[in-house]
Design a protein around this nucleic acid. Structure first.
Lengths: 107, 107
DNA sequence: ATATGGTACTGTTCATTACAAGGTACCTAT
DNA sequence: ATAGGTACCTTGTAATGAACAGTACCATAT
């Protein structure tokens, strides 16, 4: 899939999933990559960046299936950011679709 | 608007508009920027890149309102590329919207 | 003639971000 | 102990749009 389309979207995807419930990094990779092809090397730097921006807090939790998992939890600031990003995505995809229709139909 | 979202999309926008009719660069800037904020400095390098990839042919035409305009015309190769890009955009935006809904609703 | 403003196009430099590839380490089962 | 899957992290690279600056053309007003 077109790499460039993904720019900036990964952030939105992570925020959206964490809004539902806390997740660990590997889990996010699996859930997102079921819809959009991504590699874990893309997620971890992103998580670090957004944690640094105070959008997440993190905590470790034991696991029976492997090493301890680092969970990410959305902060209030993160939620605000999510809503903003979501809004921008909606406006953006609407604008693109309008341009596509314009290209097909009218002058 | 989110700068990163635009990555890769500009190409699709240009292709879509040129599929309808030949346009000159400045015209493309105006039509696209009516929906999505872009600068002319983003379009011209793109046009050059896609021309080099044989997606367009170009020709000059006189204008009464200024210097001669360079029109861009989609080639067959360009049309194929457009359809492919369009398909990818649809799949991509669908996938993102599904993830968003997943984040809001179910497990 | 010359100055101004709008039109058209061309670079150059920079920041952002996804990816590939590699590495570390843990846990369970054999 | 060894293997395989799970989980996390780091580094370097490539792609691409933005910002900024610059060239040049044309019509009109001064």
């Amino acid at each position: 899939m077109n790499v460039q389309f993904k720019k900036g979207i990964l952030e939105l995807c992570v925020l959206v999933l964490l809004d539902k419930k806390d997740c660990y990094g590997y889990e996010l990779v699996q859930r997102i990559s079921s819809k959009i092809e991504i590699s874990d090397g893309s997620i971890y730097p992103l998580l670090r960046r957004l944690t640094k921006a105070d959008y997440f807090t993190t905590y470790f939790q034991e696991s029976k299936e492997g090493p301890a998992r680092k969970y990410y939890a959305l902060t209030e600031k993160g939620k605000k950011h999510l809503h903003q990003q979501m809004q921008e995505w909606k406006e953006f995809s609407k604008a693109v679709n309008e341009l596509i229709e314009e290209g097909i139909d009218d002058e």
